[in-house]
């Protein structure tokens, strides 16, 4: 108690300046994301059983078994080991993040850059398209895409590919919008005019000046994208459009199977995969929040900016 009391005063002003909150958020985000990555990469070593394993040396696991020594988190209605499937699920989540990033960042960025810089009719057309897609529920787009790609029946690659493409369809417009908005902002900066006046060609301006100044916000979107891709895959899985249980472990699918269990009061099949999603998304989101804070000049140089004009001040020499 005394320890707590003596510790409090120095902590409070820190939190008040914002730096403390920011640091805690960043740290928590890093730890959670690190744990997630470790789980995903070391999954086969950590998990007591395979994701599609129904039996071991003692025979069948049995269905809906209570948590016990052999199955710390019990078994599902289909007779899988919940702990193992939850651990294996991290791998699937990591795969979907990587696939979705690859499929959406590059096209979104390139389209945004070229369209925003060149402008004109093609730009307006793309903006219309992107806006229409942006306003549409990503989950519905994902459903349509997964019907297109796999007809709704999924192996690991098919299901992952479908989910990744679905996520990409709703993310390409987002990258496009963000990059384009940045490009249009940067394009109006005098330093781009300065390059134009001296006769620099459009491609050189785009790559040397505009692109480099327009991608500062991208790390932020990466993290949002990562969260969204997990949530979208889980949503698809929850609607029964995910990955078949014998191809891979997927948290959304397991939750779908757990709906009936919950009504019967069985908690251990729903909570672990759900927590898997929550903690993973929490980690990436905390990371992205602290990134936003870091990028926010108002937070970075609190107090000095509003009153002391940053520029025009002290003379040279």
């Amino acid at each position: 108690m005394t320890l707590l009391l003596t510790r409090r005063p120095p902590l409070r002003p820190r939190i008040r300046t914002g730096a403390g909150v920011q640091r805690v958020m960043l740290l928590t985000g890093l730890v959670l994301t690190g744990l997630f990555l470790l789980t995903a990469l070391l999954g086969p070593l950590l998990a007591p059983h395979g994701y599609a394993q129904l039996t071991d040396s003692q025979g069948l696991f049995g269905t809906q078994q209570h948590p016990s020594g052999g199955h710390p988190l019990g078994t599902t209605i289909a007779g899988y080991d919940v702990l193992s499937r939850t651990i294996w699920g991290a791998r699937t989540a990591l795969l979907i993040i990587v696939a979705a990033l690859l499929l959406s960042v590059v096209p979104g960025t390139v389209l945004g850059l070229v369209s925003g810089y060149l402008g004109g009719r093609p730009d307006r057309l793309l903006v219309g398209l992107a806006d229409a897609l942006y306003a549409f529920p990503p989950l519905l787009l994902a459903i349509v895409m997964s019907i297109v790609i796999s007809g709704g029946r999924s192996s690991l690659t098919g299901g992952l590919g479908a989910a990744a493409c679905s996520v990409a369809v709703s993310f390409v417009p987002q990258y496009f919008r963000v990059v384009r908005a940045e490009v249009i902002r940067v394009k109006a900066e005098p330093f781009v005019d300065a390059a134009r006046v001296i006769g620099t060609g459009p491609w050189r301006i785009m790559t040397r000046h505009v692109l480099r100044n327009s991608v500062r916000t991208l790390p932020l979107i990466f993290t949002i994208n990562a969260s969204e891709s997990i949530l979208t895959l889980a949503g698809l899985g929850f609607l029964g459009f995910g990955i078949e249980p014998n191809s891979a472990a997927e948290w959304g699918y397991d939750l779908n199977r757990a709906v009936a269990d919950v009504t019967a009061g069985i908690w251990w099949t729903a909570v672990p995969p759900g927590l898997g999603i929550v903690l993973t998304v929490l980690g990436t989101t905390l990371l992205s929040e602290s990134l936003t804070d870091l990028a926010d000049p108002r937070l970075r140089k609190r107090g000095t900016t509003p009153l002391l004009p940053a520029d025009g001040g002290a003379d040279d020499e």
């Binding site: 008040r16 949530l231 929850f238 959304g252 905390l286 929040e289």
Partner: peptide, 28 residues
Amino acid sequence: DRAPDAALRLFAILTYATPVFFVGLLLK
């Protein structure tokens, strides 16, 4: 940037990070 703000931000992040069906299942 004070305690209530930090707590509320965490709350907002949590509502985002938790899939709506998982919230539903937990409430249920």
